[in-house]
Protein backbone atom coordinates (compact mmCIF):
# COMPACT_ATOMS: atom_id res chain seq x y z
CA UNK A 1 0.00 0.00 0.00
CA UNK A 2 1.29 3.44 -0.80
CA UNK A 3 1.41 6.35 1.57
CA UNK A 4 2.13 6.43 5.27
CA UNK A 5 0.32 4.31 7.79
CA UNK A 6 0.78 4.80 11.51
CA UNK A 7 -0.33 1.94 13.74
CA UNK A 8 -0.92 2.35 17.47
CA UNK A 9 1.96 4.85 17.82
CA UNK A 10 2.92 5.69 21.39
CA UNK A 11 5.52 8.18 22.59
CA UNK A 12 5.91 8.51 26.34
CA UNK A 13 8.27 10.90 28.07
CA UNK A 14 8.49 9.42 31.56
CA UNK A 15 4.92 9.64 32.86
CA UNK A 16 3.73 11.95 30.10
CA UNK A 17 1.92 10.22 27.27
CA UNK A 18 2.57 12.65 24.45
CA UNK A 19 1.14 10.18 21.96
CA UNK A 20 -1.12 7.51 23.34
CA UNK A 21 -1.98 5.06 20.60
CA UNK A 22 -2.43 6.90 17.31
CA UNK A 23 -3.73 5.14 14.19
CA UNK A 24 -3.55 7.27 11.09
CA UNK A 25 -2.95 7.00 7.35
CA UNK A 26 -1.79 9.64 4.92
CA UNK A 27 -2.45 9.00 1.23
CA UNK A 28 0.08 9.41 -1.55
CA UNK A 29 -1.25 12.78 -2.69
CA UNK A 30 -3.14 15.79 -1.44
CA UNK A 31 -2.86 17.95 1.65
CA UNK A 32 -3.70 16.41 4.98
CA UNK A 33 -3.82 18.79 7.93
CA UNK A 34 -3.03 17.77 11.48
CA UNK A 35 -4.52 20.16 14.00
CA UNK A 36 -5.19 20.24 17.71
CA UNK A 37 -4.80 22.39 20.79
CA UNK A 38 -1.32 23.17 22.12
CA UNK A 39 0.23 20.09 23.65
CA UNK A 40 -2.01 17.76 21.65
CA UNK A 41 1.01 15.87 20.29
CA UNK A 42 1.18 17.17 16.72
CA UNK A 43 4.89 17.96 16.63
CA UNK A 44 5.61 14.85 18.71
CA UNK A 45 3.92 12.81 16.01
CA UNK A 46 6.04 14.41 13.30
CA UNK A 47 9.19 13.94 15.38
CA UNK A 48 8.37 10.31 16.07
CA UNK A 49 7.73 9.57 12.41
CA UNK A 50 10.73 11.53 11.04
CA UNK A 51 13.36 9.98 13.27
CA UNK A 52 13.82 12.65 15.92
CA UNK A 53 12.30 10.56 18.74
CA UNK A 54 12.19 6.79 18.97
CA UNK A 55 8.56 5.73 19.44
CA UNK A 56 7.78 3.93 22.71
CA UNK A 57 5.53 1.51 20.85
CA UNK A 58 3.75 1.11 17.55
CA UNK A 59 4.72 0.80 13.92
CA UNK A 60 5.07 3.22 11.03
CA UNK A 61 4.88 1.90 7.47
CA UNK A 62 5.69 3.91 4.37
CA UNK A 63 4.99 2.46 0.92
CA UNK A 64 5.10 -0.96 2.54
CA UNK A 65 8.49 -0.41 4.28
CA UNK A 66 8.67 -0.49 8.05
CA UNK A 67 10.22 2.90 8.83
CA UNK A 68 9.65 2.87 12.60
CA UNK A 69 12.51 4.71 14.31
CA UNK A 70 14.59 5.13 11.13
CA UNK A 71 16.98 8.11 11.30
CA UNK A 72 16.05 11.21 9.31
CA UNK A 73 18.70 10.82 6.59
CA UNK A 74 17.50 7.28 5.80
CA UNK A 75 13.90 8.49 5.63
CA UNK A 76 15.00 11.14 3.15
CA UNK A 77 16.32 8.43 0.83
CA UNK A 78 12.85 6.80 0.98
CA UNK A 79 11.16 10.10 0.17
CA UNK A 80 10.03 11.32 3.59
CA UNK A 81 11.18 14.76 4.66
CA UNK A 82 10.04 17.76 6.67
CA UNK A 83 10.37 21.42 7.50
CA UNK A 84 10.77 22.75 11.03
CA UNK A 85 8.58 24.75 13.37
CA UNK A 86 11.51 26.92 14.39
CA UNK A 87 13.50 27.73 11.26
CA UNK A 88 16.41 25.45 10.39
CA UNK A 89 18.17 27.44 7.68
CA UNK A 90 21.78 27.03 6.54
CA UNK A 91 22.52 30.61 7.59
CA UNK A 92 26.08 30.68 6.26
CA UNK A 93 24.97 29.91 2.71
CA UNK A 94 23.24 31.77 -0.07
CA UNK A 95 19.56 31.19 -0.82
CA UNK A 96 20.50 29.12 -3.87
CA UNK A 97 23.01 27.03 -1.92
CA UNK A 98 20.35 26.24 0.68
CA UNK A 99 18.23 24.67 -2.05
CA UNK A 100 21.27 22.96 -3.63
CA UNK A 101 22.01 21.36 -0.27
CA UNK A 102 18.47 19.99 -0.41
CA UNK A 103 19.49 18.18 -3.61
CA UNK A 104 22.18 16.30 -1.68
CA UNK A 105 20.97 12.81 -2.57
CA UNK A 106 20.77 13.73 -6.25
CA UNK A 107 24.21 15.35 -6.42
CA UNK A 108 27.66 13.84 -6.98
CA UNK A 109 28.30 13.99 -3.28
CA UNK A 110 31.21 11.55 -3.06
CA UNK A 111 34.42 12.63 -1.30
CA UNK A 112 36.77 11.64 -4.12
CA UNK A 113 34.53 13.08 -6.81
CA UNK A 114 34.47 16.34 -4.87
CA UNK A 115 38.24 16.29 -4.40
CA UNK A 116 38.93 15.85 -8.11
CA UNK A 117 36.04 18.00 -9.36
CA UNK A 118 35.75 16.28 -12.73
CA UNK A 119 33.60 17.47 -15.64
CA UNK A 120 30.73 15.14 -14.66
CA UNK A 121 30.43 16.85 -11.29
CA UNK A 122 30.52 20.32 -12.84
CA UNK A 123 27.81 19.31 -15.34
CA UNK A 124 25.62 17.83 -12.59
CA UNK A 125 26.01 20.98 -10.50
CA UNK A 126 24.87 23.07 -13.46
CA UNK A 127 21.77 20.89 -13.90
CA UNK A 128 20.97 21.07 -10.20
CA UNK A 129 21.41 24.84 -10.20
CA UNK A 130 18.79 25.09 -12.94
CA UNK A 131 16.47 22.82 -10.98
CA UNK A 132 17.08 24.81 -7.79
CA UNK A 133 16.22 28.06 -9.55
CA UNK A 134 13.00 26.41 -10.73
CA UNK A 135 12.06 25.57 -7.15
CA UNK A 136 12.92 29.11 -6.05
CA UNK A 137 10.56 30.36 -8.76
CA UNK A 138 7.85 28.09 -7.33
CA UNK A 139 8.21 29.80 -3.94
CA UNK A 140 8.72 33.31 -5.39
CA UNK A 141 12.34 33.65 -4.33
CA UNK A 142 14.11 33.39 -7.65
CA UNK A 143 15.12 37.06 -7.61
CA UNK A 144 16.91 36.53 -4.28
CA UNK A 145 18.78 33.36 -5.27
CA UNK A 146 22.23 34.85 -4.71
CA UNK A 147 21.42 36.73 -1.52
CA UNK A 148 22.82 35.38 1.72
CA UNK A 149 20.11 33.42 3.52
CA UNK A 150 20.38 35.62 6.61
CA UNK A 151 19.26 38.62 4.56
CA UNK A 152 15.76 37.19 3.96
CA UNK A 153 12.60 38.20 5.78
CA UNK A 154 10.85 35.68 8.03
CA UNK A 155 8.12 34.70 5.58
CA UNK A 156 10.72 34.28 2.84
CA UNK A 157 12.73 31.95 5.03
CA UNK A 158 9.63 29.83 5.60
CA UNK A 159 9.24 29.57 1.82
CA UNK A 160 12.94 28.80 1.41
CA UNK A 161 12.58 25.85 3.78
CA UNK A 162 9.75 24.50 1.65
CA UNK A 163 11.82 24.88 -1.54
CA UNK A 164 14.75 23.08 0.09
CA UNK A 165 12.51 20.26 1.26
CA UNK A 166 11.01 19.90 -2.24
CA UNK A 167 14.53 19.61 -3.68
CA UNK A 168 14.75 16.14 -2.17
CA UNK A 169 11.82 15.13 -4.42
CA UNK A 170 9.88 13.84 -1.41
CA UNK A 171 6.81 11.65 -1.70
CA UNK A 172 5.70 12.74 1.74
CA UNK A 173 6.44 16.17 3.18
CA UNK A 174 5.69 17.24 6.74
CA UNK A 175 5.27 21.00 7.11
CA UNK A 176 5.53 21.83 10.80
CA UNK A 177 3.67 25.12 11.34
CA UNK A 178 4.72 26.76 8.08
CA UNK A 179 2.88 30.03 8.75
CA UNK A 180 3.54 30.40 12.48
CA UNK A 181 4.68 33.94 13.19
CA UNK A 182 3.92 35.18 9.67
CA UNK A 183 1.97 38.29 8.76
CA UNK A 184 -1.38 37.93 7.02
CA UNK A 185 0.06 38.62 3.57
CA UNK A 186 2.92 36.17 4.18
CA UNK A 187 0.30 33.58 5.15
CA UNK A 188 -1.51 34.08 1.86
CA UNK A 189 1.76 33.66 -0.05
CA UNK A 190 2.51 30.46 1.82
CA UNK A 191 -0.96 29.03 1.27
CA UNK A 192 -0.43 29.44 -2.45
CA UNK A 193 3.07 27.97 -2.27
CA UNK A 194 1.80 24.91 -0.40
CA UNK A 195 -1.07 24.39 -2.82
CA UNK A 196 1.26 24.75 -5.84
CA UNK A 197 3.83 22.43 -4.31
CA UNK A 198 1.26 19.70 -3.64
CA UNK A 199 -0.05 20.00 -7.17
CA UNK A 200 3.15 20.40 -9.20
CA UNK A 201 5.56 18.20 -7.25
CA UNK A 202 3.18 15.27 -6.80
CA UNK A 203 3.96 15.25 -3.10
CA UNK A 204 1.67 14.27 -0.28
CA UNK A 205 1.74 17.11 2.25
CA UNK A 206 1.07 16.72 5.96
CA UNK A 207 0.36 20.18 7.32
CA UNK A 208 0.70 20.80 11.05
CA UNK A 209 -0.89 24.15 11.70
CA UNK A 210 -2.75 26.31 14.20
CA UNK A 211 -4.05 28.76 11.67
CA UNK A 212 -7.56 27.49 10.98
CA UNK A 213 -8.14 29.75 8.03
CA UNK A 214 -5.12 28.26 6.23
CA UNK A 215 -6.05 24.72 7.22
CA UNK A 216 -9.64 25.03 6.02
CA UNK A 217 -8.54 26.72 2.81
CA UNK A 218 -5.90 24.29 1.58
CA UNK A 219 -6.58 20.88 3.16
CA UNK A 220 -8.24 17.90 1.54
CA UNK A 221 -8.48 16.08 4.85
CA UNK A 222 -8.13 17.16 8.45
CA UNK A 223 -7.22 15.12 11.53
CA UNK A 224 -7.70 16.54 14.99
CA UNK A 225 -5.39 15.41 17.80
CA UNK A 226 -6.06 16.04 21.47
CA UNK A 227 -4.11 14.69 24.41
CA UNK A 228 -2.11 12.34 22.28
CA UNK A 229 -5.14 10.69 20.70
CA UNK A 230 -7.12 11.18 17.53
CA UNK A 231 -10.32 13.08 18.18
CA UNK A 232 -11.73 13.29 14.70
CA UNK A 233 -10.77 12.85 11.08
CA UNK A 234 -12.53 13.84 7.84
CA UNK A 235 -12.97 16.60 5.32
CA UNK A 236 -12.60 20.18 6.61
CA UNK A 237 -16.36 20.70 6.79
CA UNK A 238 -16.97 17.37 8.56
CA UNK A 239 -14.34 18.14 11.17
CA UNK A 240 -15.64 21.67 11.67
CA UNK A 241 -19.08 20.29 12.43
CA UNK A 242 -17.88 17.56 14.80
CA UNK A 243 -19.13 18.38 18.34
CA UNK A 244 -16.08 16.69 19.90
CA UNK A 245 -13.80 19.08 18.06
CA UNK A 246 -15.83 22.10 19.09
CA UNK A 247 -15.63 20.95 22.69
CA UNK A 248 -11.88 20.39 22.51
CA UNK A 249 -11.26 23.86 21.10
CA UNK A 250 -13.92 25.97 22.80
CA UNK A 251 -14.68 23.88 25.85
CA UNK A 252 -17.91 23.51 27.83
CA UNK A 253 -18.17 23.50 31.59
CA UNK A 254 -19.38 19.89 31.58
CA UNK A 255 -16.57 18.62 29.43
CA UNK A 256 -13.84 16.86 31.38
CA UNK A 257 -11.77 16.75 28.21
CA UNK A 258 -12.02 20.49 27.66
CA UNK A 259 -10.74 21.17 31.16
CA UNK A 260 -7.75 19.01 30.53
CA UNK A 261 -7.10 20.65 27.19
CA UNK A 262 -7.24 24.05 28.84
CA UNK A 263 -4.85 22.87 31.52
CA UNK A 264 -2.38 21.66 28.93
CA UNK A 265 -2.78 24.74 26.78
CA UNK A 266 -2.24 26.95 29.83
Amino acid sequence: MSGLSINDLKVHFGGIRALDGVDLTFGSSGIHALIGPNGAGKTTLVNAVTGVYAPTAGRVLFDGHDITGLPAHKLATLGVTRTFQNLQIFWTMSVLENVLAGFHLDSSAGFLRGLLRGPALVRRERELTTAALGLLRLVNLEAKANNPADALAYGELKRLEIARALAGRPKLLFLDEPVAGCTQSEKCDLAEVIRNAARESAVSVVLIEHDMRLVMAVSDRVTVLAQGRILSTGTPSEVRADPKVITAYLGTTQSHLAEQVHAVAG
Binding site: F90, A101, L121
Partner: peptide, 27 residues
Protein backbone atom coordinates in the same frame (compact mmCIF):
# COMPACT_ATOMS: atom_id res chain seq x y z
CA UNK B 1 37.61 21.57 -5.04
CA UNK B 2 36.12 19.86 -2.04
CA UNK B 3 34.77 23.12 -0.61
CA UNK B 4 32.91 23.90 -3.83
CA UNK B 5 31.61 20.35 -4.28
CA UNK B 6 28.34 18.87 -2.98
CA UNK B 7 30.41 17.05 -0.35
CA UNK B 8 31.81 20.35 0.95
CA UNK B 9 28.36 21.90 0.79
CA UNK B 10 27.07 19.09 2.98
CA UNK B 11 29.88 19.80 5.48
CA UNK B 12 28.87 23.44 5.67
CA UNK B 13 25.23 22.43 5.92
CA UNK B 14 25.70 20.13 8.91
CA UNK B 15 27.65 22.89 10.65
CA UNK B 16 24.72 25.26 10.14
CA UNK B 17 21.88 22.86 11.04
CA UNK B 18 22.14 19.15 11.75
CA UNK B 19 18.36 18.49 11.72
CA UNK B 20 17.92 20.22 8.37
CA UNK B 21 20.95 18.40 6.93
CA UNK B 22 19.56 15.04 8.00
CA UNK B 23 16.18 15.94 6.51
CA UNK B 24 17.99 16.61 3.22
CA UNK B 25 19.43 13.08 3.31
CA UNK B 26 22.89 13.97 4.60
CA UNK B 27 24.30 11.27 6.89
Amino acid sequence: NLMSSPWGRALRALHASEPASAAAGID
